[in-house]
């Protein structure tokens, strides 16, 4: 019985005749902060789309808990890109109200808590927000659901380092023990302290999946140096 796992096996994904993920394998235990690292275009967002279920044309298997079904995976995961396509003329409050109707596990109280901590004004229209505030809002919405897997795609893009620290420490205080939070980022140092594990994507594969503390203990390398070692000389590879 391996019900508290998230796994992708022999996952291959193509779009526009372009191979994006090729026979990718990933197996994570639930309950951790996981850093999904990789250069731009390495397939981080695609992997999240596949896990969440908005991308469907893959071969292989994807499982969250015991479920492979797409609807179940949408129920079991909360994706920060789910805001894509919303009418930007609506206020943050209106958008959250609709989320509360569309997602049965959405907690308006949790959302209010996040927006207070993130200093967002819910009477503002989405279109009036800066890029950083938009990211914060997407994170608030994503984390306000009560589910197993949270997928945050570059949540700290456009956010200054002071605020970033606050958001991270807020996330640590918030995270339920059983929940898994997957954060994609291409600046490792943004998030490295809170990560239990890192998954490095490169050349359409998972090239490394390690526990961060073990990594430091065994190699004496910083996580960033370890991550960058995969990209050394890659400029001449192509």
């Amino acid at each position: 019985m391996t019900t508290n796992k998230i796994s992708a096996e022999h996952l291959t994904y193509k779009r526009n005749r372009h191979l994006i993920l090729d026979d990718l394998n990933l197996n994570v235990q639930q309950g951790h902060f996981i850093g999904l690292l990789g250069a731009n275009g390495a397939g981080k967002t695609t992997l999240m789309r596949l896990l969440n279920g908005v991308a469907t044309n893959f071969t292989g298997t994807i499982q969250i808990g015991a479920s492979e079904s797409i609807v179940d995976r949408k129920q079991l995961s909360s994706f920060s890109e789910s805001l894509k396509g919303v009418n930007a003329n609506r206020t943050l409050h209106q958008i959250a109200t609709d989320y509360a109707i569309m997602y049965l596990d959405f907690s308006e109280k949790a959302f209010e808590n996040f927006t207070n901590k993130y200093e967002l004004d819910c009477h503002q229209k989405l279109s009036a927000l800066s890029k950083g505030n938009r990211k914060k809002f997407a994170t608030a919405l994503t984390l306000s659901r009560q589910t197993q897997l949270y997928l945050l795609d570059e949540p700290f893009e456009g956010i200054d380092s002071m605020t970033r620290k606050r958001l991270i420490s807020n996330m640590i205080a918030w995270k339920p023990a059983a929940a898994t939070v997957m954060i994609s980022d291409h600046h490792v140092n943004d998030v490295v302290n809170i990560l239990d594990e890192i998954v490095v994507l490169k050349d359409k594969h998972v090239v490394a999946h390690r526990n961060t503390e073990q990594l430091r203990e065994e190699t004496g390398m910083s996580v960033e140096a370890y991550y960058e070692s995969f990209y050394e000389g890659s400029a001449t590879d192509d």
Partner: peptide, 15 residues
């Protein structure tokens, strides 16, 4: 038509 291709709707857990 937007509904079919926007995450905003397609991410919702509904068949």
């Amino acid at each position: 038509e937007h509904t079919w291709v926007d995450n905003y709707y397609r991410s919702v857990p509904i068949t």
